[in-house]
Amino acid sequence: MRITLEDVEYRYSVNTPFEHLALHDVNMTIEPGTYTAVIGHTGSGKSTLLQHLNVLLRPTKGRVIIGERTIRAQKKKEKNLKSIRQKVGIVFQFPEHQLFEETVEKDICFGPMNFGVPEAKAKELARIALKQVGLEQEILKKSPFDLSGGQMRRVAIAGVIAMEPDVLVLDEPTAGLDPRGRKEIMDMFYQLHKDRGISTILVTHSMEDAARYADDIIIMHKGTVYQKGKPEEIFSKPDQLLELGLDVPDTVRFQLMLQREMGIRFARPSLSLEDLVADIKEAMERGNRL
């Protein structure tokens, strides 16, 4: 499913003293089956943007086209948003805060049943989703509140996956997890993206994750799209990112330090440790014979 934003503007609290322009002139298309990372510092409009992707917010100007549906700025209340919300699943920050049911199974089934899936089918979806997030079937009957923080996070994610969305929007899905948990969850989302062709939109502060997983990166700055490009393009201008108050991947930061101290130049940004090792090795072997 394709999602297109055309000249989207969003103002909070219109016609009040607290009116605040959060998004303006946002134009972008998320093609089906792609993996997009959205980066930008706190307050750049990332969260407001992602709430437009399943109509939790409606633009105050412009339009959002989600599959067949067009959401316009208008006073009239939009009807039948359920189908959009089923197709576009959002994993919010700290999703485990939203767990509420008595058992893990009921919690995961809540979403699909809410969208009209019969109970037996929902239970089957719950089992599949649980496996997908790397948890054992035994915990289905447990209370989600007896689980560890990492397990709770996975259960909450399973609840979104069980709705079988076409598009997954992930808002800092690994914040607060330990390094292994972080990698497992990110790899799991990537696998889902590959296996089921789910379009994935990752909002993140981790430039490593953006570089490793995304096909495209969108930089949000002051409420609008500052730049869009492939990771190699985005990270080939590290100075620009640093000026925006953003980080660059560890590998790129290290290249910059070496360039400055050693007086050499790297032809391209290294986006993985393996690339960086190869590039340094080559630079060292070239030695001073530049």
């Binding site: 330090m257 101290e261 050693m262 340094i280 090795k281 630079a283 060292m284 030695g287 001073n288």
Partner: peptide
């Protein structure tokens, strides 16, 4: 990969420094 680095490098600065030294000897 066979680069002759000696120290454990807890900071990137230390590693850059040693690479620079190695580089100038090559």
């Amino acid at each position: 990969t066979g680069l002759d680095l000696k120290n454990d490098h807890l900071t990137e600065e230390e590693l850059v420094k040693e690479l620079c030294e190695l580089h100038s000897k090559m």
